[in-house]
């Protein structure tokens, strides 16, 4: 098996024609045309941990591209300072997110050796954004890792600028894999069950898995929320899912 990869920050065209930075990881010598994944970072931003996740996709045979959703808010700043600046502005507008994912998907489809199939995955706030992208763009597979505020509005008293987007589900363009923690409150199991019910009613292909003993951010290996059993099984689910929908 050839397991070489290359990775680094590049410039791509995002929402509104803006040039934005993005972290690209891809196999060096792919044996056959490869599928691709847009990685949506979590709220702490374009950080080392999510770059590591992006490289993990390349190590498993996919091209992966993570747009820096905060680069407009703090050009040239460190990821944590940029995240603070983006947060102070109320986060990433939904329209801009969709435009940036569209730009990333177009870049991936144009890569030499790409098979033209593009999936999306997002963590935390990126989980909601993964669903949003899959309901707004033509994609081949989407993964939502514990994204909240898809069905339920933000809790009262919290001035979140995001709103529920379950009404977009009828436009979901691809199969959806949902990976959640049973101990998570945002999204709580009741919210993801409601989401699954709506997708079933619409006849949308989806697979949801909720792990006992895991809460929010169980994939995050550098945080105390990490749950090795849930994360390992979750990665197996992701490889199986993308293998079915993104591989040639």
């Amino acid at each position: 098996m050839k397991d070489g990869l290359t990775a680094g920050t590049i410039s791509i065209t995002g929402h509104g024609g803006d040039e934005i930075e993005a972290y690209l990881a891809r196999p060096l010598d792919p044996a056959s045309p490869f599928g691709s994944v847009v990685v949506i970072h979590h709220m702490p931003g374009y950080d080392a941990a999510t770059k590591e996740i992006t490289r993990k996709f390349a190590a498993n045979g996919y091209a992966a591209l993570m747009p820096n959703l905060y680069c407009r808010d703090a050009p040239g700043a460190s990821p944590d300072d940029a995240a603070a600046a983006a947060r102070a502005k109320g986060g990433v507008p939904d329209e801009r997110l969709v435009g940036d994912v569209a730009g990333a998907a177009a870049h991936l489809r144009a890569l030499d050796g790409a098979n033209g199939k593009v999936g999306v995955i997002g963590y935390c706030s990126g989980g909601r954004q993964s669903f949003l992208a899959a309901c707004s763009l033509q994609l081949e597979a989407a993964v939502d890792c514990y994204g909240a505020c898809i069905v339920n509005p933000p809790p009262a008293g919290m001035p979140l600028k995001v709103q529920p987007i379950i009404d977009l589900a009828k436009a979901l363009s691809c199969p959806l894999l949902g990976l959640f923690g049973a101990d998570d409150q945002y999204p709580a199991p009741a919210e993801t069950a409601e989401m699954a019910k709506e997708l079933s009613a619409l006849g949308k292909t989806h697979e949801f898995h909720t792990y006992d003993g895991a809460g929010h951010a169980f994939f995050a290996v550098n945080r105390p929320s990490y749950r090795v059993d849930a994360a390992n099984d979750g990665w197996e689910k992701i490889w199986d899912f993308y293998g079915r929908y993104l591989a040639s």
Partner: peptide, 26 residues
């Protein structure tokens, strides 16, 4: 909210800032 570095799922975060000097003035 989620911390960048602290070993907790959520923390009380304080940023002391001067936006006029850019996002790195923090």
């Amino acid at each position: 909210d989620h911390p960048q570095h602290a070993q907790a799922e959520h923390t009380l975060n304080i940023d002391f800032l001067n936006p006029g000097k850019g996002p790195s003035a923090r």
